[in-house]
């Protein structure tokens, strides 16, 4: 399974922009928001937690359809399915690889973008913590969505429709944690919920994703 993780990371680096693309998208969305809502600092402070989370979520969504589509097109997926790797393990590794290539860079870059949106100083640590805890769930849920739609031509838009409603709880708890941090309130409850969603997703969704993959490979 480590071999698969290494290969996916190598592919992300060499395909040029595997790491960078989601990050650039994140930056652009965050830069566009003040153009849309106006430059008023107080307003930006107010909406910064939500904007940063929504932008991170969309950036994660952007690269989901590549999780299985490339392996499906070149025939790697049936070969992996007949290899000794359990397909559940393949799904888990794909989720982890997606997180390392998108969720992790987003988490690291988010505090810097917080400055652009005039995020309250007390919120930075919560922004970082909530993204660190929450983006793995986004990747794993997305892996499930990608597994459902892997056999479909033009499955990308459909996948967004399937995955976005599943993102609702993660988004709510993530943005709420940052908002509470910005208001100087305790953010432990939403962070714990976020951690719960992430752990639950990693424990259960690989099974659902591999079931979907098996059906799609038939």
């Amino acid at each position: 399974m480590i071999a698969l993780l290494r290969r996916d990371l190598a592919l992300a680096v060499r395909a040029g922009g595997g790491f960078g693309l989601g990050l650039a998208f994140f930056l652009i969305v965050v830069v566009l928001v003040p153009f849309g809502v106006g430059p008023e600092a107080a307003l930006l402070t107010l909406i910064a937690p939500g904007i940063l989370w929504v932008a991170a979520l969309l950036a994660a969504l952007l690269s989901l359809d590549r999780i299985f589509a490339l392996d499906f097109e070149d025939g790697s997926l049936p070969l992996l399915a007949t290899s000794p790797l359990p397909l559940e393990g393949v799904a888990l590794i794909k989720g982890i690889a997606h997180w390392i290539t998108t969720g992790l860079p987003l988490t690291l870059a988010a505090p810097a973008l917080g400055f652009l949106l005039n995020l309250a100083p007390s919120a930075y640590v919560w922004l970082f913590a909530s993204l660190a805890l929450g983006t793995p769930a986004l990747s794993m849920i997305g892996t499930f969505g990608a597994a459902l739609t892997v056999g479909l031509r033009r499955g990308g838009l459909l996948m967004s429709l399937l995955v976005l409603p599943l993102y609702v709880p993660t988004l709510i708890f993530g943005a709420e944690a940052v908002r509470r941090g910005a208001d100087g309130l305790g953010a432990a409850t939403p962070l714990l919920m976020l951690a719960g969603i992430t752990l639950g997703s990693f424990a259960l969704l690989p099974f659902a994703a591999s079931a979907a993959l098996r059906v799609n490979l038939k």
Partner: peptide
């Protein structure tokens, strides 16, 4: 049959997340 399998899996996973959303929205 593929559609039936995949929508069934989506329905089950979706149900879990729908309940989760209900609590998240209450919290929010």
């Amino acid at each position: 049959d593929t559609a039936a399998d995949l929508t069934s899996v989506l329905c089950i996973v979706g149900s879990v997340f729908a309940v989760l959303s209900r609590y998240a929205v209450n919290f929010w």
